[in-house]
């Protein structure tokens, strides 16, 4: 089987956590850091560790993401979640180009057509979408044009925005992180009339990754759209989804797939840290 030969094996370690100004007495959290089995990836091994120690509970949420829930009742001033997984990924498939027209049924994916808080557009962007659509006679080309537009107009600047940011904010300052670019792309794809999903996962930064070398990776986000079938694309890097991408969850936007979120009783949070280490094993 050639696909076996072509596949990569990636080991991902994702460490995420909060620090507080004093003792937190109680805390309830949900981590969405567990890669899912999917058409283009197989999860060989995964685990999530929590500090202070807590019993974890797993379930699959509405969007199909594996959620690890836990609560901590011992006093603590720091909370850490470490997710480790080994995933086999495939190279990109063909990007379907042309051949489809606009007359496909979208009812099945209706909720991916609606704007959300982070994917809302303004009049300016809506007009741009209309123009892009007019210029392309099939949905696939229009969608690619949207992704290209986002990539060319909004600069990818790490740390430019926080997790609460939205597409409009990134658009106004013409810069953002992968989360923002994906929100903007998803919002514009929806405005085109294409159901679009926001995808959360990881990216190996090097296209020519050395086997055995551990590199600093990142939480990543990209989009998928429906034009008779689903197409995945990474608007931040302008590449189709392939070897380097590990998929964790899909939703309408970040709010449906936050890697770590929770509530706690105690003083305010003074710091937070996210570290992702990715190693290509094969």
């Amino acid at each position: 089987m050639t696909s076996l030969v072509d596949s990569w094996r990636l080991k991902v370690q994702h460490k995420s956590g909060f620090e507080y100004a004093g003792t937190v007495t109680s805390s309830y959290n949900e981590a969405r850091m567990w890669p899912r089995n999917d058409a283009r990836q197989a999860v060989l091994d995964a685990k999530i560790e929590v500090w202070p120690p807590a019993r974890t509970y797993q379930y699959e949420d509405y969007w199909g993401t594996v959620v690890t829930a836990f609560d901590v009742h011992a006093g603590h001033d720091k909370l850490t979640v470490t997710a480790s997984s080994t995933v086999e990924t495939l190279p990109p498939g063909d990007l379907l180009s042309g051949g489809l027209d606009w007359g496909f049924d979208t009812d099945r994916w209706y909720e991916f057509l609606l704007p959300t808080r982070r994917t809302r557009l303004n009049d300016e962007l809506t007009a741009i979408v209309a123009e892009l659509r007019a210029r392309h006679d099939n949905p696939q080309d229009a969608a690619m044009a949207v992704c290209e537009f986002v990539r060319s107009e909004v600069a990818y600047v790490p740390g430019a925005t926080g997790v609460q940011s939205d597409a409009l904010h990134a658009w106004e300052q013409r810069k953002g992180v992968c989360q923002d670019l994906s929100h903007l792309a998803a919002g514009m794809l929806r405005a085109l009339g294409l159901p679009a999903r926001y995808v959360s996962g990881y990216l190996h930064p090097k296209p020519s990754a050395e086997i055995g070398e551990s590199v600093v990776g990142q939480s990543h986000a990209w989009v998928e759209w429906w034009a008779g079938r689903w197409t995945s694309y990474d608007p931040t890097n302008g590449v189709p989804i392939g070897h380097r991408h590990v998929l964790v969850g899909r939703g309408r936007e970040y709010g449906d797939v936050p890697p770590l979120k929770g509530i706690y009783a105690g003083p305010k949070s003074t710091g937070q840290g996210v570290e992702v280490t990715i190693t290509r094993l094969r």
Binding site: D61, Y62, W63, Y110
Partner: peptide
């Protein structure tokens, strides 16, 4: 929804359709 008795949009746009309750 699949059978089209109730359009999906009615559910998708309902403020009280709580996806957290699925499952």
């Amino acid at each position: 929804l699949a059978d089209g008795v109730v359009p999906r949009r009615i559910i998708a746009t309902s403020a009280h359709y709580l996806r957290a309750a699925a499952g």
